[in-house]
Amino acid sequence: MSETITFEDFSKIDLRVGTVIEVNDFPKARKPAYQLTIDFGDLGIKKTSAQITALYSKEDLLDRQIVANVNFAEKQIANFRSQCLVIGAVDSEKVILLSPEEQVPNGTPIR
């Protein structure tokens, strides 16, 4: 288990639902990855890199709703600026994306 945090610490994390609107290969990444463009509704469009090629094809991801942290500081990955972090469960080096069971508006907060 990780270090214990306070509710105040947790409340700083902004998790939102978004829809993947574009998926591209990311050949400059050190490990196989995609570049995702995600629509977060009123929060706008954000881009990220995700090492999820083991379980997901580009076609699987397009139009899929996902959960992401939208208030991380941007991170430079090779020649790409990642603006959010897609959330998933990690199992034996594979990432299983978290997503709502039903369609919800883009930008819906996770509490």
Rank of each mutant, 00 (worst) to 15 (best):
K31A: 08
R30Y: 12
E3I: 15
T37L: 06
T4G: 00
F26T: 01
L62C: 05
T48G: 06
G88P: 09
F80M: 08
K94S: 07
I13R: 10
D63C: 00
L36S: 08
T53M: 07
V90G: 03
E3V: 15
T108Q: 11
F7Y: 11
P100T: 09
D9Y: 11
V95E: 00
A33K: 10
I13D: 03
S82K: 13
Q35H: 13
Q65N: 07
K94Y: 09
E22T: 10
K58T: 02
D63F: 12
E93S: 13
A78E: 14
T6K: 05
P27Y: 12
V86E: 01
A50Y: 11
F26S: 04
D60T: 03
S82I: 07
E3L: 14
P105R: 01
Q65Y: 05
S57E: 03
E74D: 11
F80A: 03
L98H: 11
I87D: 00
R111M: 03
L36R: 12
S2V: 11
S2W: 09
M1I: 14
E74Q: 12
D9H: 13
D39T: 02
I77K: 13
L98Q: 07
L98T: 09
F40L: 06
I66G: 00
S82P: 02
P109S: 04
P109G: 01
V70Q: 01
E101D: 14
Q83L: 04
F40H: 12
L85K: 13
K47P: 04
L43W: 05
D9E: 13
N79S: 12
P32N: 10
S49G: 14
F72E: 03
I77V: 15
Q65V: 02
A73W: 05
L97G: 01
N106C: 14
K75Y: 06
F80H: 13
F40P: 10
N106F: 11
R30M: 05
F72M: 09
D39H: 11
I96E: 02
F7R: 07
Q103E: 09
V20C: 09
Q103I: 15
P100D: 05
E102R: 13
I5V: 15
P105K: 01
F7D: 01
S92F: 02
V70G: 01
S92G: 05
P105N: 08
N106S: 12
E59S: 14
K46V: 02
D9I: 08
Q76A: 06
I77A: 04
A78R: 15
E8P: 03
A89T: 11
E8T: 12
I5D: 02
V23Y: 14
F80N: 06
K31G: 00
E74I: 07
E74W: 09
Q83Y: 11
